[in-house]
Design a protein around this nucleic acid. Structure first.
Lengths: 348, 348
DNA sequence: ATGAAAGCGCTAACAC
DNA sequence: GTGTTAGCGCTTTCAT
């Protein structure tokens, strides 16, 4: 791969490097003749400045980094879109990296992005990090005031800025909705406890039951082991006696799978079983009946997080106080808990 | 944001920059005493080498870039996962950028990534680029032999390496499947013609009909205008007389929406209407009945593309001949075209 | 065992 | 108008 640099151009044209540099910036210092000669040569050889060199010089890249567990999650993709919108308006570009839910990858990306590759980083914790509760790899960045903002999952004990969802309240509202349509034996399908968002949604579930004077039947709380088949685990719920008359799945996947399983077992939905999910993705709109969900406004979360990040970036030497911002959720009632038929989703 | 550099360390410790550098690399030239002093200081101040400087020196980053239109597409997310797997095995990391389907963004990312930010780039064409047919922004990179590999959508006229799907054959197979279960009036829901993948799938559709001695009724070919509501456009198909008895949607979205609409209109599926989609994402598994689809093996496409890219990267100065690799598709028959009930999807 | 110096590619202040 | 120089942060060769 041959490279065209200021130096190579200067040599080829018998001028100095700075002449070339100035000519490319249309400096009035350079005579029209030499400038034309240089521009012509550059055009011909498709000269492009080396970004590493630019970055080194300016100590600024015009890029912000986003670290997410992986691609393909509807919620995160909405967050990213929100981030991009704000970044674009600020003249920044967004680069995305996947932690793959592993702490080492998370730390490595941060090390890369924090050391000149980007001007700031937005991230959500890897599951492994959350599970192990070891947040030491964030300390250097916090200490030196590198612009860093978390979204969704974040280290609660650390003095960092974050944009999150009120999961407890959302969980409570979803559950109250089930109780509100007359259900009395709602079940919960949730994640392992170390995932704090799942835990808080469970908390809301419990609060709602308590508030309505209902006892929490621990058998109706299903904690999914992600290493095992989902379907078999959910089936267990339907073997209870009495079986649940409603299900709250803390994500779209759990809820949709439960719904499909129930329908296949011949249950009437929402008559025999009402189902509500979380995180309003593509699946919810296309199940039958369409799935009611707590919608998370990922787009808004992304926007807010990016704005927070830019305020950090702009603050420069004097890092602002850490801030926690909360994004409200909404309840979208569709056929899986509503009595009326709901129109078919119209694409997107 | 305060920075710790070799220089600042050297000054603080009263040694030279090169001594610090060597100490950090455990060079035997440095006395254990000084080394300890330096390491201690670095640990305390969380020293991390600047990546821009490293990149400048080594002319290598250990990173490959991927440019996709946007996030949230199941197919692309599978491709990315495939790329990551191969990259990881090769000791590389993967950075992702979104072209947002715009040519300028595509060109800018390429300019960034191709000028020192990454060691190679994998990309799929932005819709705008495909539509306008202007591929000039790729020429510099091709000319100077920068490691570049396309996947899925690529500039067919240019001497570039690409990994693609045999869309024509896949379209033919999907259509033949519909004919094979006795349908005689299949309709096609496709994209605007400038999207070559949509066009080739349409070609396959036509070939299948011709092969079976059926006439192509142009009324049954619906070209979606993406700026208008999807649902209304699809409804038009059902008003035909006679209406189609089968639908082939060139993506999951089109197929799922058609299926839901038909079922809501009281049609029996697949009796009155069989439906088949393309690109086996999450939606297909969760519709009712589950959607038959042509599956695209995005993961394998990503792996193949990454392998191709690494062969380019390893080739160094002597760029290898451009290569086109074709990834086969498979047909997955589910309830929307099959007569037998199909089990509920088991999560993922 | 330690340091000076050159250079990766670029910019910008300062000559001439 | 054009060139020289210093420096961004790092590595590496070559002195000392």
């Amino acid at each position: 791969m041959k490279k065209v640099t200021l130096k190579s151009i200067a040599k080829a044209l018998g001028v100095s490097v700075s002449t070339v540099s100035k000519a490319l910036k249309n400096s009035p210092e350079i005579s029209p003749r030499t400038r034309e000669r240089i521009l012509e040569y550059c055009r011909l050889h498709h000269y492009e400045p080396n970004r590493m060199a630019l970055g080194l010089r300016h100590r600024k890249t015009g890029i912000i980094g986003v670290i997410v567990p992986q691609t393909g999650h509807y919620f995160f993709s909405r967050v990213i879109t929100g981030i991009q919108k704000v970044a674009e308006a600020a003249g920044y570009r967004v680069l995305i990296a996947h932690s793959n839910n592993e702490t080492t990858a998370e730390a490595e990306w941060l090390r890369l992005m924090g050391n000149g590759y980007t001007d700031g980083v937005l991230l959500t914790l890897a599951k492994e990090t959350l599970q192990r509760g070891d947040f030491r790899h964030f300390l250097p960045w916090i200490q030196r005031g590198f612009p860093l903002v978390f979204f969704d999952r974040y280290p609660e004990k650390l003095p960092v800025s974050a944009v999150i969802i009120n999961d407890t309240e959302a969980g409570r509202r979803a559950t109250e909705h089930l109780l509100g349509i007359g259900k009395r034996r709602p079940a919960l399908i949730t994640t392992p406890v170390y995932l704090s968002v799942g835990y808080r949604r469970e908390l809301g579930f419990r609060q709602a039951l308590k508030k309505h004077g209902l006892r929490v039947d621990e058998n109706r709380i299903l904690r999914i082991d992600e290493r095992k088949p989902l379907l078999a685990q959910i089936q267990g719920l339907f073997r209870l006696n009495p079986p649940p008359d409603a299900i709250f799945g803390v994500n779209e996947q759990y809820a949709a799978t439960a719904l499909n399983l129930a329908r296949q077992m011949g249950m009437d939905i929402p008559g025999d079983l009402a189902v509500i999910g979380f995180s309003d993705g593509m699946i919810a709109r296309h199940t039958y009946p369409p799935l009611s969900t707590v919608v998370q406004h990922g787009f808004r979360m992304g926007q807010t997080a990016a704005e927070l990040l830019f305020s950090h970036i702009r603050a420069g030497e004097t890092p602002p106080e850490p801030q926690i911002k909360i994004i409200d959720t909404d309840l979208v009632v569709r056929g899986s808990t509503g009595s009326h038929p709901v129109p078919v989703a119209d694409g997107f």
